[in-house]
Simulated scan of single mutants.
Amino acid sequence: MVLLPPSETKAVGGAGAPLDLDALSHPELTPTRRKLIEALSTLADDVPASLTALGLSERQVEEVERNAELWDSPTAPALERYTGVLYDALDVRSLSAAERARADARMVVASALFGLVRGTDAIPAYRLSGGSALPGFGTLRSVWRPALEPVLADADSLVVDLRSGVYAALAKVPNAVAVRVLSEDAAGKRKVVSHHNKSHKGKLARALARTPQEAGSLEDVLDVANDAGLQVEREGARGLCVVVRA
């Protein structure tokens, strides 16, 4: 399992039927999903309150309008719904049929609204960030952690965790392989990469989607990454570091 962060930006539209919660993977998350969707769509009736709760400006009112139509708007597969730097680097549309099937099976997006979605899960466009707090719910961390952690604890395969901090806070994953990105200058000094962090994580996710063999250990992930031309090093017992030349 490659655990991805979502993106703030979403592709609009879609060719799928309206949202069917019963058709999504991880059905044990359905009650929490339903409560959050009902709360988010109801909040959309009050545009100023929605903008405040979601941290949006008045120029982003269309995001609130999308939330108002969560039950009725068309859907698209999750790996095509999310956009932005990481998903540009993952670039699922350019994968072969076999590679895309592996991406759909291996990639899981940590969503503030849906908890976890697999690549083929059909979802609408929405706006809700991991750091948001909906009226009457408190933080999303308090909502999702009790529901998500048991699901992730039962994962029967290696988990490569590419989530950003705010989404990692929604649930801990026992024994996951954590990945961070550092830049290295000519003098060998390293620092945390911010702007291009997502791009390099997307490249690692793409490499893990393309390999025919399941990665069963940290060493397997290391081999896949290096074979793909990424400079990746081991950090401790459960960590990997992608090193980028500044």
Rank of each mutant, 00 (worst) to 15 (best):
V193Y: 07
T75I: 07
G131E: 06
A205M: 08
T32D: 05
P77W: 02
V47T: 13
P74T: 05
V173H: 01
L24G: 06
E233A: 15
D88C: 07
E219S: 15
R118I: 04
D20E: 13
V92D: 01
L182H: 12
K35F: 11
P18V: 10
M1K: 12
D154M: 07
R66A: 13
E233K: 12
Y167H: 10
G188A: 09
L51T: 12
Y167R: 00
L230P: 10
P124N: 08
S183I: 09
A155K: 01
E235C: 11
F137H: 13
V243C: 08
L204I: 01
S25K: 03
L113Q: 07
R81Y: 04
D161Q: 06
V160W: 04
D20M: 03
R66H: 15
R141F: 07
A11K: 12
E8P: 03
A15S: 14
D45P: 08
V108K: 04
G131F: 00
A98S: 15
L230E: 08
A97Q: 12
E235D: 15
T211M: 09
V47G: 05
K198V: 07
A76I: 00
A225I: 03
L208Y: 09
A11V: 13
R245W: 03
T42V: 09
L182E: 15
F114E: 11
Y126C: 02
S57K: 10
R141I: 02
V2N: 06
R234T: 06
A246Y: 03
D220Y: 11
L51Y: 10
R190H: 05
A23M: 04
A133S: 14
N197I: 08
A215F: 15
L182A: 07
D22C: 04
A78G: 05
L134R: 01
E62L: 11
G115W: 04
D72K: 11
V61H: 12
E80L: 10
N175C: 11
P74V: 06
Y167V: 02
V159W: 02
K189P: 01
A49E: 11
L40C: 07
L134T: 04
A225G: 07
A209W: 05
P174R: 12
A122G: 07
V166L: 08
E63K: 12
T139L: 09
L148S: 04
V2M: 14
P146R: 12
A68P: 01
P27V: 05
L21P: 09
A153R: 14
S129E: 13
R127N: 14
G188P: 14
L113N: 06
T52Y: 02
A23I: 00
K10S: 12
G130D: 03
E28V: 15
L170T: 07
R145L: 04
S142K: 12
R100G: 08
L152Y: 00
L56M: 10
G236R: 13
G216M: 06
G84C: 06
A39Y: 00
V47R: 03
G119Y: 08
L70A: 04
H200Y: 15
P5V: 03
S96N: 10
M107Y: 13
P27T: 09
E63N: 14
S94C: 01
A39C: 10
L95R: 00
